[in-house]
Simulated assay, not measured.
Amino acid sequence: MVFDFLQPISSELEEFIQSLSNQALGKKVVFHTQTDFPVLENVSLAIITVNEYRGANKHNSEFSFEIFRKKFYSMFPGNWNTTIVDLGTIEAGASIDDTYFVVKNLMSELIKKKIIPIIVGGSQDITYAMYRAYDNLDQMVNLVSVDNQFDFAKETSLVSSSFLSKIIVEEPNNLFNYSNLGFQTYFNSQEEIDLIEKLYFEAYRLGEVSNNITVAEPVFRDADLVSIDMNSVQSSYSGNFDEFNPNGFTGKEICALARYAGISDKVTSFGIFNFNTTDNEVVLTAQMLWYFIEGFCFRSNEYPFGTKEHYIKYIVPIDDEELVFYKSNKTERWWIEIPFLTNVNNKLKRNTLLPCMHEDYLAACEQEIPERWWKAQRRNIA
Rank of each mutant, 00 (worst) to 15 (best):
D4V: 00
R350T: 07
V283H: 02
Y260I: 06
A261I: 08
K58I: 05
S123Y: 07
C255T: 02
P218Q: 06
V120R: 09
S44L: 04
V120T: 13
N60I: 00
A46Y: 04
S179N: 06
L225R: 03
N148E: 13
S160T: 12
F163Q: 07
I168H: 00
T35E: 15
K349R: 13
E294Q: 15
S210P: 09
Q234A: 10
F16C: 08
G262T: 13
F270N: 06
I96N: 09
D86C: 04
I272P: 03
V324N: 05
N22E: 10
N60K: 06
I254A: 04
W374E: 15
E366P: 01
T127G: 08
N81H: 12
E12G: 02
I312A: 09
Y291F: 15
L257P: 06
E62S: 13
S61H: 09
F340T: 14
A153D: 12
Q377L: 15
I381P: 03
S328Q: 05
K112F: 05
L284M: 10
S95R: 07
R333S: 11
R333W: 03
I118G: 03
A364C: 12
F340W: 14
V324F: 01
T35K: 15
L341W: 08
S44V: 00
F65I: 03
F220T: 04
K114W: 00
N177D: 14
V324Q: 02
S161T: 12
L106Y: 01
N22Y: 06
A24Q: 09
Y260E: 00
Q149Y: 00
A363R: 14
Q377N: 14
K252V: 12
I213A: 09
E208M: 12
G88H: 00
L158V: 00
I228E: 02
V103D: 02
N245V: 13
V102Q: 10
Q184E: 14
V316S: 01
L195F: 12
F72W: 14
L181D: 06
A216S: 11
A94M: 11
V324K: 04
K28R: 12
N42K: 13
Y260G: 01
S238P: 08
G26A: 10
I47Y: 02
S161I: 00
D265E: 07
F5T: 05
G239F: 05
N81V: 08
K71M: 13
F5R: 05
